[in-house]
Structure formats: structure tokens, C-alpha cells
Amino acid sequence: MKEIIVETIRRETGAFMPYHQYIEMALYHPQKGYYMRKQPKIGREGDFYTTPSMTPVFGEFLGKWLCRTLKEANLPPVICELGGGGGQMAANVLKGFTEEDAGFAMELVYYMVEASPYHQASIKHVTGDDSRIRILPALESLPLIEGIIFSNEFFDAFPVDVIVKQDGEWKEAGITPIGEDLVETVRDIRDEEIRQLLQTWDIPPFMNRIEIPLQMIAAYEAVIDKLMCGFLLTIDYGMDSEEWFSPIRKDGTLRAYRNHQLLDSILDTPGEADITFTVPFDLLRNQGTKMGCHEKYWGGQAEFLIEGGILEELIPHADSDPFSLASKRNRQIRQLIMGESISDYFRVLWQEKHIL
């Protein structure tokens, strides 16, 4: 993959590749991009864990919550999951949805937007090729819907641009080849959208490096446009601007993981590592408000789960066996809501559109 990127940059005038283009190639190149390769990415054999892979009860509870939310709003049983991954979330959501209302679940239409052929095959395998699931290669293929569009760890995988402070001025960072190596260089900011965002973002003076997620914002706009009536539920590793703009993050949040290890640089092994950043949720919240969405909830994942009723999922039992199904399920629930849990790192944004 590195050789392809080097040759691509050398064909460009000025031998400079913006970060968003580098990340796009490293993650989504049709043959050698990280997400397109035929290999596990999630779990012990992959490079990172997700909440659904660690605690199946998360997806099962979410399925029940989605079912109740659709029924309470008198919406049809239509769901769209953005970034379906290997299909584990969908399998768990379908299980919970069916447990909540088997009849309603029979009518369910479950769209999954997933670009990776490897993941598409995995989804079919994990879900048993469920006829209710309709896999789409891109958001553009999703029809206008009434229902719920939800995502879990979707927006943190979007390519971003990077700006750095040099002599007190913001410059655009990019990639240049030196021999067979990739190194970071800077140039004046040329993209007008980046300039506009910088003018509206209240950036503290101590920040030295910032990710500019233009593709993330554009994707969120497209998602809202696809929803005629219903809800948007966004779960991701992120925070609001007050927390995002912190001295401990003054050098940005862009990072890469391989074999569950944080790499020194995202330029080390393109195509072989997951590249991610911490989502600045205020950009999504503000975009939703601009486009006519009403915010129902913003906050931590644990609080969202508790308010949604996950404590009711605890199974009363007198079984002292820590390996019993009841003990295992209760332990998963506690892992989701108690201090120092995986939920501490995730935020939830719940917005509604045209709900009367």
C-alpha cells in the first residue's frame, strides 16, 4: 500500500497529498485498503475491540430500545445501520428487537450501509442471510426512509484533513515521499471549507494540531437528508468541544492501531492499521440543529443506557456460578454502566426529525 501511495503522490503537482486523501487510500483502497482487505479487524484476532464484540447484551438492549422507540412514535419498522462491520451488531439488534415484539420484527426492514465486500460476506454469514437485511454499498444507495438511522463507531473512521500551527499561523499538513518513506510537510491552507470552519470554530490558543472532519460533516448532512421522518442515533468515541479542545489533546487525536497497539505514526503501515480520531460531537449536533433536527439526548453512553432501561435487563438469580448464563449477562450489563467501563469512552447523540 505504501508503494501505491508514494507513486500517487509523485504524480501530483507539488508532491503533496492532503491527509484526507492519504487516509482515504490507506483505509478504503479497493484492493489494499485496511477496511477492504479480507482479514479480521475486530476482536482478539483483529486490531481493535468494539462494544458489540465485547458485550453482546449491548446490541440486544439496543434492539429492544429501537423497537420501543419506533412503536412509541408510530413509525414503520424500518432501521438503517451505518457501517455494519462484520454483522455482530445487527445479529444482536435483531435478537433484541424480536424479543421485544416478534410480530413487529417480522415486518422489519433492516438496511445496512457497508462498503467492504469482506464485511458484506461476514454480515450474511453472521446473520444467516436474513431476508430482512438489505446490504447497501454506500449511503447514496439508501432510499428515503421513515424510521431510525443509527451508527456505532462509524464517524470516527472518516478521513480528515489536518492543520498545524507554524509561527503562530495555521497551515495545512500533508504527506510527501522522501525516498521510499512518507513524511509530513506543510503548506498554506488552500481549501476554502477549511478556512470557513476555522473562522467559526472557537479554537483555544494552546492548540497546536487539529483534525478537520469535512467528510464527516458532509456524511452527516447526507444521513439527515435520507431521513424523511424519524430518529438519528449516533454512538461514537468522541466529546464536545470543551473537552475536545484540551491541553492534553493540543497535538490532535489522529492515531492508528495495529494488533491492539497504538502506533507511533499513522504513516508507518498504511493499509495494515486502523486509523481513527476522536469525534468532535458539537459539529454533528450543530449540523443537526441547522437542518431541522431536535436534540433528544446528548451525553455519556452509560447514562443513555440507564435512562433507556438497561437495568431492567438484569436477571435476578441465586446462582453462585460465575460462569452461568445469568451471571455472564449481568456481568456484561455492569461492564456497560459502571465506572471505568467501556461506556466511559463513548458518547450518544439522539436527534429527531419531523416527529409530531
Rank of each mutant, 00 (worst) to 15 (best):
Ala302Arg: 03
Leu233Met: 08
Ala26Lys: 07
Asp202Ser: 13
Arg195Gly: 12
Met36Val: 02
Glu243Pro: 02
Gly85Trp: 06
Glu221Val: 15
Ile175Asp: 01
Glu352Gly: 04
Asp268Asn: 03
Ile203Pro: 02
Glu303Pro: 00
Ser341Thr: 07
Glu312Gly: 07
Gly63Ala: 08
Glu72Trp: 12
Tyr110Lys: 15
Gly339Cys: 08
Val186Thr: 09
Pro322Ala: 09
Asn74Thr: 10
Val126Lys: 15
Arg347Phe: 00
Leu197Arg: 12
Val186Asn: 02
Pro213Asp: 08
Ala173Trp: 00
Ile235His: 03
Glu114Tyr: 11
Thr289Gly: 01
Glu192Phe: 04
Pro270Phe: 01
Arg37Lys: 12
Gly292Cys: 00
Ser141Asp: 15
Leu325Phe: 13
Trp244Ile: 10
Tyr22Gly: 03
Phe206Asn: 12
Leu75Gly: 03
Glu303Thr: 07
Ile315Met: 05
Pro52Lys: 11
Leu227Ser: 11
Pro30Ser: 11
Leu108Gln: 15
Val162Asp: 00
Gly87Ser: 08
Leu136Pro: 06
Cys80Ser: 10
Leu233Lys: 05
Asp202Ile: 12
Ile337Trp: 06
Phe346Asp: 02
Asp236Glu: 09
Tyr22Asp: 05
Ile355Asn: 00
Tyr297Pro: 00
Gln196Gly: 03
Tyr34Met: 05
Ile194Ala: 02
Phe16Gly: 03
Glu107Pro: 12
Pro137Trp: 08
Ala115Ser: 14
Ile266Glu: 04
Val109His: 14
Gly63Gln: 09
Ile310Leu: 06
Pro204Asn: 09
Thr200Trp: 07
Glu184Lys: 05
Leu267Cys: 05
Glu172Asp: 02
Tyr220Ile: 11
Glu352Phe: 01
Met207Leu: 14
Gly230His: 07
Asn92Gly: 14
Phe206Leu: 13
Met338Thr: 14
Pro205Tyr: 11
Arg255Ser: 10
Thr276Gly: 01
Leu325Pro: 12
Ile203Arg: 04
Asp47Arg: 09
Gly238His: 04
Thr276Asp: 01
Phe16Lys: 03
Ala318Cys: 10
Tyr35Val: 03
Gly83Gln: 03
Gln21Pro: 07
Asp130Ala: 15
Pro117Asp: 11
Lys328Thr: 13
Gln351Tyr: 04
His125Arg: 15
Ser246Asn: 14
Leu325Cys: 09
Gly86Phe: 04
Tyr35Lys: 01
Arg347Lys: 11
Ile23Cys: 06
Val186Gly: 00
Arg195Val: 12
Phe48Cys: 06
Ser116Trp: 10
Ala90Tyr: 08
Thr127Pro: 10
Asp268Thr: 07
Ile217Arg: 14
Pro204Ser: 10
Gln335Ala: 13
His317Thr: 15
Met291Phe: 03
Ile310Pro: 04
Val109Met: 15
Asp188Lys: 04
Pro143Met: 11
Asn152Tyr: 02
Leu214Thr: 12
Tyr111Glu: 13
Gly33Lys: 03
Ser320Val: 14
Pro56Cys: 09
Val223Leu: 10
Ser327Arg: 09
Ile194Val: 11
Lys250Asn: 09
His29Ala: 08
Val93Met: 13
Phe155Thr: 01
Asn286Cys: 05
Trp201Asn: 01
Gln88Arg: 15
Phe158Arg: 01
Tyr257Gly: 03
Gly14Ala: 03
Asp202Thr: 13
Ile212Ala: 07
Val78Tyr: 04
Gly292Asn: 02
Glu192Asp: 06
Arg11Ser: 13
Asp167Tyr: 08
Ala26Leu: 10
Thr98Asp: 14
